[in-house]
Each structure stands twice: as C-alpha cells, then as structure tokens.
C-alpha cells in the first residue's frame, strides 16, 4: 500500500470506511482544538487521519498523516509475542490470533510505530483483546482492495504489490522532484514495511519515527538465539564450580553454623 500524503485532502473517508467494514463503534470525544478525531488510534479506531499544522518556508501548511498498522516485513510485534499470536502472512497483512493472546501487551512495547492497542474498558467476561488494522485481509483474500484504499476519493492510497508500489513511488518522485521528499518511507525503515509513504515534508515532521533499516528486534532475537547454548554452558560451569569447590574442601571438617538463634 502506497500512501501519497501530498494528495490527501483530509476528508477522512478512509477512516469512516475502516470503521464500516470492520464494524467498529464510534468514539465519544471532546473538541481538543484539532481536527484529529478521535485523538489517537484505539481498539475501536484502527485507521486515523492526523491533522498537522506545520510551518515550512515561513508559511503555515496543513498536512495529513494516515496512521495505521505498517504491516512490517519483519514485524516487531510478531517477534515479541510470547505465544506467537501475531504473524506476517505471505500476502502482506500482519494478523492476530484472537485465541492465543494472553494480554501481556509486549507487542505494544515492541512496535516502533505505536500501533497495537488494547481493549482497556473490557472486563474479563467481555474478552479484551489487542486490536489493530488487519489490512482488510478478508477483502484482500477475495480479490478486493482494503476498505480505506477503496474509499479514498483522491486516490491517496494505492493498493498493490510492494515492489510495484516502490517503483511507482520512485517514478512519482522522479517526475515531480519538487513535490516530494526524495525518499519513500517504509522502503527500508525497520526492515521495510508493507505500507509506504510519500510526503512533501520530512517524514519526522509528519510524525513518523526515525528508524534504522534493521528491524528493531535484531538485538532481542540475537539474545534469544544464544540463550539455550548460553544456558547449557552456564549450567555446566556452575556444576563444575560446585564440584571443584567440594573437591578442594574434601576432608575438611564441616564447621557448625556460627551462632544458633535464640
């Protein structure tokens, strides 16, 4: 999915289409002095247009960011989930298994984009779960485009294969170099994402995090890969140490404990 933010008019048709297709209830909100509404992604809002007033070249401009799951090529949430409730599908969507999750919320800690949300208002009987954009996997599997892409009147959201979309994005940058920042966000970030952005202002200003091209979980995965070998070596070392100390202490009289308690 390629999102050309320079085309966005902030109409929020994508936000509404997402709610309709995924059957998500509206949220009661208050005016907070911004058009961004609701204020953030939540268990009931999986896709959100953020409105930004940003000063560039002495002029205040209105900019928009469509925030939703990036569907990473190497998702940190899936790497972090202890029960493997999240996984990357071959078609692209990162999906969540409602039946596995124990609600530890480590996926929310690991996601560098701050995407997964939790059902904070649900008691045990209501079965709270982690919620996020599912790339309309049910539509995609039946040959349809995701609801947000389908609804967008100014064709901001382009749905297709990742390589084609990167080629398309690069072509647009080449054709109108003045219009775009010379980079596609998501091509490399955090190991690459299935959602790609084009923008006329730096992506950090738009509100997207500055990330390396390596997945954020490289270190934690490295640690996990060497944990079992380390455990074997450490267990052997502790056993060896205990035996060595006993062997050196052999024949020595066992001292009674220093003082008996009253």
């Amino acid at each position: 999915m390629l999102i050309d933010e320079t085309r966005c008019t902030g109409c929020r048709a994508c936000q509404v289409a997402c709610k309709q297709w995924n059957d998500l209830p509206a949220e009661t909100t208050r005016n907070r002095g911004t058009y961004t509404n609701p204020p953030a992604l939540s268990a009931n809002t999986w896709s959100l247009i953020e409105f930004k007033e940003i000063e560039t070249r002495g002029q205040i401009g209105f900019y928009f960011l469509r925030r939703a799951c990036m569907h990473c090529e190497h998702p940190a949430c899936a790497s972090a989930c202890l029960v493997g409730a999240l996984h990357k599908t071959a078609e692209g969507p990162v999906l969540y298994d409602d039946h596995k999750c124990i609600g530890c919320r480590y996926c929310m800690i690991a996601c560098p984009f701050g995407i997964p949300t939790f059902d904070w208002n649900k008691g045990l009987l209501d079965q709270p779960l982690i919620r996020k954009c599912v790339f309309c996997a049910d539509r995609v599997q039946n040959g349809l485009t995701p609801a947000c892409a389908k609804a967008c009147p100014s064709r901001v959201i382009l749905f297709g294969g990742r390589d084609e979309l990167i080629a398309e994005g690069e072509a647009r940058i080449r054709q109108s170099p003045g219009r775009y920042v010379n980079r596609i966000y998501g091509k490399a970030e955090a190991g690459g994402t299935s959602v790609l952005y084009l923008s006329s202002i730096p992506f950090e200003q738009l509100g997207l995090p500055r990330l390396d091209s390596a997945p954020v979980t490289v270190l934690s995965e490295w640690v996990m890969r060497y944990t079992l070998p380390f455990a074997a070596a450490w267990g052997a070392a502790l056993t060896g140490l205990a035996l060595l100390v006993r062997w050196r202490n052999r024949g020595k009289p066992k001292r009674p404990s220093s003082k008996e308690a009253a």
Binding site: L82, G84, Y106, M224
Partner: peptide, 9 residues
C-alpha cells in the same frame, strides 16, 4: 503456544 524468538517467552 511457543515463540522462542520472544524474550517474553
């Protein structure tokens, strides 16, 4: 359910 990649595991 195992995910040996996860530190939380």
């Amino acid at each position: 359910f195992w995910n040996p990649e996860s530190v939380m595991f």
